Simulated assay, not measured.
Amino acid sequence: MSSTPYLDALSRDGFVTIPNLIPPQLLLALKACSKYTTDRARQGKWPYVRTVPKQYPPWQEWKPGDNIWGIQHLLHADMNVRDTFAELYFSDEVLSVVKELLGLKDDPNGDEKLVMELFNLLVSPAQHQDFELSWHRDDIRPDVTPEEEERLLQEKSPGGQQLHAQYNIALFQDSSLIVIPGSHRRVRTETERAAAPYEPHLPAQLVVELQPGDAVFYDSNILHRGIYKGIDVTSDFGRMTLHGSVGLAGHGNERARQVLQHAVGDWVDRAQFSIEGRRGERAEGMRRRLVDMGGGKDLGYSLVG
């Protein structure tokens, strides 16, 4: 039996699913906070959102008539239910997986090498307006040559290791994420390069099925896309999935761009948390290491659209 089954699966397939990651009581609390937060965002009472049809940052603040597919900055100092979101983000359940994936499982100082990054909520658009994300890797543009793609894949996962761990945690049933297993370690095939951006069927693609409380951790280099089914918000909750990332300290601008392009540097210096004890110390250390990365004003954006 391997001592790192999650890392083994991530290295082989580019993703790993973990059932029932969230304790039942916390799952109930997160559902309630997410419903409340989503309602406020749809009414324009929380301006930091991802709007249809824009896929990548920079994100614009909400304006009347906007339909949203994501809610940004759940750990923001002005988010009035952020303590509940912080309970999950800094939890042992999540960070024990993160440390395994970042090679810190047996490191007694592992907590001191973690960096707070992003924590957002992905939701179904309203008014039955479907929305799709095109096939992409999170930090490699689709127009690069095969040679450049190979170089970037190696650069962004030195020695086969990611500089961060990212995940989706479903609060309700979710089958939105589509991945191509193994594509995180190779350049695209000719079929993949020639495919339309929203090609519905690529060879070997797999729909990641999550039940409430399940998580999927995935390599940001994996070829993937998302499908968001629009709903009637008066009768359906649709998709509510927490999307987060945690970084590995000491990698400068290479990781800073991907994080700070989301404008988290604008508020993290005042994002104190009410968590106590060892987890509180861990949370403050992770927050401080993000502050140390700076504001990110001149780092640019990974993808365009």
Rank of each mutant, 00 (worst) to 15 (best):
D13S: 14
A249S: 11
I22V: 15
R289I: 01
R225Q: 15
R82N: 08
L101A: 09
G65K: 05
A165F: 01
S134M: 08
H128V: 01
V304N: 13
A249W: 01
A29C: 11
L28H: 08
S302A: 14
N67G: 06
E132Q: 11
H164R: 06
D214H: 15
K35Y: 08
Y56Q: 06
S235Q: 15
V94N: 12
R40P: 01
V52F: 11
K229T: 14
A196S: 14
S124C: 05
D139V: 08
G103F: 07
K105P: 01
A204T: 05
R42Q: 12
G65M: 12
P47D: 08
E93Y: 10
R225M: 12
G238V: 01
L303S: 04
K113A: 07
D236S: 06
Y301L: 10
A9G: 03
N221F: 06
D107K: 10
A271T: 00
V304R: 14
V304L: 11
K45G: 10
M293A: 04
G277N: 09
L163W: 04
G285Q: 00
P58K: 11
S34L: 12
E147C: 06
R185K: 15
L223K: 08
R287A: 01
R287C: 02
L101N: 04
E112T: 05
F119S: 07
K54I: 13
Q261Y: 02
E155V: 01
Q154A: 13
M293H: 02
H251I: 03
P23R: 15
L27H: 12
N80M: 12
L74A: 13
M293F: 04
D143Q: 13
R12W: 03
T51P: 00
A215W: 09
P47K: 08
L30Y: 08
Y167Q: 11
V81P: 00
Q43C: 11
Y218C: 08
L177Q: 08
Y56I: 01
P47H: 04
P24I: 12
S11E: 07
G277Y: 01
L7K: 10
F15S: 02
A9L: 11
S302G: 06
W135T: 07
G44S: 09
